[in-house]
Design a protein around this nucleic acid. Structure first.
Lengths: 261, 261
DNA sequence: CGGCTTAGTGTCGGACTGACTTGAAGTCCG
DNA sequence: CGGACTTCAAGTCAGTCCGACACTAAGCCG
């Protein structure tokens, strides 16, 4: 059974695709900024989402191979740590962010994907809350990008990001991962904004409310968000934390219309 | 960026969870066998599926760790081959079967999952056609099991099989992998039988037909299967081959009622 | 106070699903 | 030869779900 070549000489790396919501303008700043800011935000024409998109931190490679190019944050697997711990560690070391959600994505191991040596990369994908992104390291070699417009990365990282984006958009339809983008309590409008940004499609507020409420994924906290210039919305919280990994196979479809395309 | 411990000393293995349909009695044999065989098959009470279930080959470990226990077929990754090629190779070396479908499942790499040394296992799952299983190696150290009743395997292989089963049942609902269990052309009854066996649930033939036809996943070949003791059914073939891997993200929902539970 | 904005509820028509019925096309057997 | 039997295949129908839209509620602002 232990046939096959000697695997020593193969190195195991861990990389992570990190998604966050672009900070954009917070609702408070938005209104505090007055009409100018409001008009500028609206004039982008991006519907109700204030023009926000997905954000993703990349790091510039400081050595060969691929020196100078942008790449996913990552590093070598430490012999004593689990794959997930390695993902979280390298993620924080290189970018300074801590994930609210971390799940294994895929393992890339083609012989030619890295020159010189054979590298097997276990790739994770992560979601971080907006407030986490402010802890990000202030380093010219770390920059945030729009994952839909990012091309020309080192190695096969273009492919990896594309795959992770597909996974994020698909998984949004049958799990509760959207909560990982938000604070512990949130309004349904904020939750809907996450879906709209990720799915790149406006959703009917009324139907969205019906779908989410009937799914039982959130509960009413009984509190209201005050300080808005309009009717105060209810605050909700998730029922269950989103779990990942090979145990996380509980597929609770939220609603068909929240699926891709 | 290349911080972290030296990854050498970590070995990369590849394992595969293989699913096939239990050969059971082919329709021809079934009817050729006469009433005795027919009654015996029917008396199992397993509805229209002639009592067939899923089958999975396991191999007995011939050395420590876990000597004597049953385990998933696998082996070490060769430095020059891709992960998928390694999965196909070790699969054939140990069990003699060649997969009609092969997709990466998950990478298991907890530090303590194998005693003594650190092993990162990239696990694949495969589907094989029934005729392939006849090529299986005749070896007392290879035996076929019912994946739903298999417990007590070496390492963390119980967990892996459970995860693969969940993946198979889930993926059946939104992809065309069921074709990988069948010959190049098949009747809708045969396709339905695959779904019934995997989902462990009877399906209404009329509604199944409607769902599959409207999904556009199969096309009528114009031919009929003859030799049956009843009205000859039409033969169909898949429109697209089922593709796996990080490109295979085309999610074409066949029908909601073909999903799990 | 009246107008404005967003929150949240109600309703209606079409599409889909699941259970069932009916007709079709062969073989088997007396 | 013809009727019984089997499965294939198409049709029917009621309940449910979904998307679109109208409408009311509740705060702020001038």
């Amino acid at each position: 059974m232990n046939a096959g070549g000697d695997p020593r000489g193969i190195r195991v790396a861990v990389s992570t695709v990190i998604f966050a919501l672009e900070p954009g303008v917070s609702p408070e700043e938005f209104w505090a900024g007055g009409l100018d800011t409001a008009l500028r935000a609206y004039s982008t024409g991006e519907s109700s989402s204030l023009g926000r998109t997905l954000w993703m931190p990349l790091v510039r490679r400081l050595r060969e191979p691929g020196e100078g190019r942008w790449a996913l944050p990552g590093g070598w697997l430490d012999p004593e740590e689990s794959l997930e711990a390695a993902a979280a560690r390298t993620l924080e070391e290189t970018t300074g962010v801590r994930p609210a959600y971390l799940e294994q994505l895929f393992t890339f191991g083609d012989p030619g994907r890295s020159p010189d040596e054979r590298v097997v990369s276990v790739v994770y994908w992560a979601l971080v809350r907006p407030e986490e992104t402010s802890d990000a390291i202030d380093d010219p070699n770390v920059r945030w990008f729009d994952p839909d417009r990012t091309r020309g990365l080192a190695f096969d990282h273009d492919t990896i990001i594309e795959y992770a984006l597909g996974r994020l958009r698909t998984k949004l339809g049958y799990s509760q991962i959207a909560h990982a983008f938000l604070e512990p309590t949130f309004t349904l409008a904020e939750l809907r904004e996450v879906y709209e940004i990720v799915l790149q499609r406006p959703l009917d507020p009324a139907n969205f409310r019906r779908a989410v409420e009937s799914s039982g994924a959130v509960v009413d906290t009984g509190e209201l968000r005050t300080g808005t210039p309009h009717r105060p919305p209810k605050l909700y919280r998730p029922v269950h934390p989103a779990d990942a990994g090979p145990g996380g196979f509980v597929r609770v479809p939220i609603a068909p219309h929240l699926r891709r395309s």
